[in-house]
Design a protein around this nucleic acid. Structure first.
Lengths: 137, 137
DNA sequence: TTTGTAAATAGGAATGATTACGATTCTGAG
DNA sequence: CTCAGAATCGTAATCATTCCTATTTACAAA
């Protein structure tokens, strides 16, 4: 998903497209990886001095709800990234820079067969480590 | 792992086996599933009125360090369970009761081949939903 | 069994991320 | 242009977790 698709989606759902909301989207589009609320605040304060925590967290939550952002938990902090809507896949996540690499492998079909009497709602498959460029830094 | 194996391990590493430490272990042995620090506090306060947060968290952390407990993050809270040491596997986790079911499937060999230039440190594969008995409650 | 000491705990304050809320400002439909 | 509802501000509150110092305890060695 990119910024304009996300704004489109917001408007369709009846949410207003404010300047801050757009800037949050362009931020996540530009960084291409997982970022924390703190990262986002730091970025937005350059433009909007004294922006409220409320605005940050409310919008992060909203974007997660409507599927614009996806989220994961890394050492006690929530991290967010633009949602990849094109197809089902998982991610390698670099612990250093937060960038991700898509993994096409998903064993859920096999898992579902072995859990036939369980009601499966969700699953998480993530690989953590250092990406090639962070290995040398 | 069970309580006596865990106590053995503690002593081998030079840690003291206090009454509270033993009770934490028997608690996790008896519940057989993921529990939060809060759950544990609630249980221990029946025996040890006014037990300190410090004691709880310090020991949870210690047990994770030495491999007695394993940990996962469910909606913003750390959850702990007795470590299954016998072989590598993953878990279905019931969102309602916290109980788990082992999943033997793990696609990491395949993933490693596709990430040859990445330094893989860890991975997480978890399935969430409702177990058979919680579906009817 | 007693003792010495390093480890463990109590009690509560501090921290850090996140959420809540009344007052104010802004967006966008009409 | 107007105006109602949505969004934001500024800050306090909350919640899980960590930190700190004084006190207590486990257990190795005498």
């Amino acid at each position: 998903m990119n910024t304009s698709e996300a704004i489109e989606l917001l408007k369709n759902k009846g949410f207003k497209a404010t300047g801050k909301r757009k800037d949050i989207l362009t931020y996540f589009e530009s960084v291409d990886g997982y970022r924390t609320a703190k990262d986002l605040i730091q970025h937005l304060e350059e433009t909007y001095e004294g922006i409220s925590f409320d605005t940050i967290y409310r919008n992060l939550h909203l974007y997660s709800e409507v599927g614009i952002l996806e989220t994961t938990e890394l050492n006690g902090e929530k991290h967010f990234r633009m949602n990849c809507t094109h197809h089902h896949h998982h991610h390698f996540i670099c612990k250093d820079c937060g960038k991700t690499k898509e993994i096409e492998i998903c064993p859920m079909e096999e898992v579902k067969r072995t859990l036939s009497n369980y009601e499966i709602e969700d699953h998480k498959f993530e690989i953590y480590g250092l990406c090639p460029s962070c290995q040398h830094a």
